[in-house]
């Protein structure tokens, strides 16, 4: 068990690699009770969210969700989150555990009339059921319920009126769903999903799975000093929807070019795993450092990582070296995602 954002979390239950493979080929379950949940509602809520988040919430139909980012005035990332539209003027936001207080304070300070914001994080337990067999687990654990479509959300009322939220999203690159229930019902639901075939997975596998997909981890790959354009998340930025916090900086970057790009890196010789903060060299000079790194179980144990590098290095095949405890190992830039599911 390790401390994580104020929680005690298991790195592994039986083994990172086994858990990783279970999610790629079967189905795994992650405890995500640490994540935060905000409810936003009110007649002005759509415009308000559009002014605080990079993606366009107006594009969401009821029952749909989208990945989005909340930026500071400098265009840097405060948090990345998913916003689900649960009603005409109702939104369910899932935010990072380590950012719950900061997100809430940032949003509260910018509240406008006709918007209500509630931090419901302590009220919810959460679990992510992920893998090609997640649909089977859903069917067994929730007979009669319909799984939302990709990125979608559904609310179900059960067990003495306790509300559960089902989201067809995840952080592994596999099909699956995230399930939020009243905190007191967490253990019961966990056991239900495990009995239906989901294998318990810890933070270790969560990290290797997301890294193989090139998904950023806030605090590692996202920072208040880097914009989502530098992080390669332009797809989740709607510059056409009107003003939002950070937009000016993004517009300037788009016009004048990016100072750096979050780039995929892969080791090309046999060597030790590469990890966050290892220095990245090209032509003998340091050009950056890894913000994430690790072993990719689905790529034969290859060392992969991500680093903010000068834009010249953002194309695949650029020759690099990674410094591991004073020794340099050959590496190259590669396209993300590192792993693609076999067709």
């Amino acid at each position: 068990m390790v401390p994580f954002a104020g929680w005690k979390m298991p790195v592994q239950y039986t083994g990172i690699t086994e858990e990783h493979q279970a999610v790629r080929s079967g189905v795994g379950i992650f405890d995500i009770s640490h994540m935060g949940q905000f409810l936003v509602s009110g007649s002005a809520s759509m415009d308000w969210l559009n002014g605080l988040l990079t993606n366009g919430v107006h594009k969401l139909e009821e029952g749909q969700g989208q990945y989005t980012l909340m930026l500071n005035e400098r265009g840097g990332v405060i948090d990345d989150l998913i916003v689900y539209r649960t009603g005409p003027e109702e939104w369910f936001l899932v935010v990072n555990a380590s950012k719950i207080a900061e997100d809430r304070e940032w949003m509260q300070a910018r509240l406008v009339p006709d918007v209500a914001l509630a931090d419901e994080s302590p009220a919810f337990a959460g679990m992510a059921v992920q893998g090609p067999q997640a649909v089977d687990v859903f069917g067994k654990a929730l007979p009669g319920e319909r799984m939302p479509s990709r990125n979608g959300v559904a609310m179900i009322a059960r067990r003495n009126g306790g509300k559960c939220v089902i989201c067809r999203t995840g952080y592994t690159g596999e099909d699956g769903f995230e399930f939020f229930c009243p905190a007191t019902e967490g253990p019961e639901w966990w056991n239900t999903f495990v009995a239906a075939g989901a294998r318990p997975c810890g933070l270790g596998a969560r990290d290797t799975l997301r890294l193989e997909m090139g998904y950023p981890l806030n605090g590692n790959d996202l920072s208040p000093d880097r914009t989502p354009l530098e992080a390669g998340l332009g797809f989740f930025v709607d510059l056409e929807k009107g003003a939002f916090v950070g937009r000016t900086v993004l517009t300037e970057q788009k016009a004048n070019g990016l100072p750096s790009k979050l780039t995929g890196v892969r080791v090309t010789e046999k060597g030790p795993p590469i990890r966050a903060h290892y220095a990245v060299f090209a032509g003998g000079a340091q050009i950056g450092e890894l913000c994430s790194g690790g072993v990719a179980p689905s790529l034969g144990g290859a060392g992969i990582g991500m680093a903010y590098l000068p834009p010249d290095f953002a194309t695949p095949g650029k020759v690099l070296e990674i410094d591991v405890r004073g020794r340099r190992f050959a590496a190259e830039t590669v396209k993300k995602p590192f792993y693609r599911r076999p067709a």
Binding site: V11, Q12, G204, T208, P273
Partner: peptide
Amino acid sequence: AVVDSVKAA
């Protein structure tokens, strides 16, 4: 020496 596992160095 250093022992590197999937988890950590």
